[in-house]
Design a protein around this nucleic acid. Structure first.
Lengths: 123, 123
DNA sequence: TTACCTGGTTACCTCAAGGAAACCACCATG
DNA sequence: CATGGTGGTTTCCTTGAGGTAACCAGGTAA
């Protein structure tokens, strides 16, 4: 009965999960909740993202209806990306994740070091 | 002063985000919140995961201190994985994500189809 | 005229994630 | 004796994600 059982390999939620489990998408959505923003500004804001990946990320976010694209016929064409209501619901959820990461980062790092040290001294 | 600014490329939260942005980890943690579970049971539960990936996923979850491993010297060695308190806090957050996926899956899929149809008929 | 901004797309190439399958030890059961 | 179940590890190989960089159109400023 679980048409939506992510543990079944052909379940569509897996795809959504994959979508969401995308570092760049998480970061882009995180910026967009603060307001609409242009392509190149976005690119500069998200350190390390390539033009290609940003374009790709935005395209699939738009396809999913999570962000909207609006082009302005200005001097050099201006394109503004904004988050949709649906996107906002996801962004809120993802933000919780970012917060978790920020909150527990130290603890996780400490755990890793302890683990690595232990593995080394193990027989 | 944001030492924890995920938009900076060298920020450690990026690593945590990567860790968390792992389909298998999400699914495994989702199962572990229901209680301790053995390796092979886990493998059968998570459809499509390979032995290697499960082993790898569990190892890094253990390294992060998100799950704990306990081996029993039974007839065939039994190994039980359990979620840690830290892991539970993450699992709760991730669960929200899974719920989001389940809830909005249909809407997202519909958006995709509309987008694809539009792109086709566009000049 | 040349250079640069806008926002992209495309071709090329590399590198690593991850699947498949074999191998491991050990014991029980058929 | 051979097979199967326990929980893994390792090797090999493929494939696709993603980086780099060139190219595009069009207008404007130097």
């Amino acid at each position: 009965m679980n048409i939506a059982n992510p543990y079944s390999s052909n379940c569509p939620t897996r795809k959504v999960l994959d979508r969401v489990a995308d570092k760049w998408a998480v970061l882009v959505l995180g910026l967009l909740i603060e307001g609409p923003i242009r392509f190149n500004r976005l690119r500069r804001a998200v350190e390390g993202i390539s033009q290609k990946m940003l374009s790709q990320t935005l395209k699939s976010l738009e396809r999913d209806g999570l962000v909207s694209r609006k082009a302005f016929a200005t001097v050099p064409v201006t394109v503004e990306y904004a988050i949709t209501p649906l996107g906002q619901t996801l962004a809120a959820t993802l933000d919780a994740l970012r917060v978790w990461a920020e909150t527990h980062m130290e603890e996780v790092t400490a755990n890793q070091q302890r683990y690595d040290a232990g593995a080394k001294s193990d027989a």
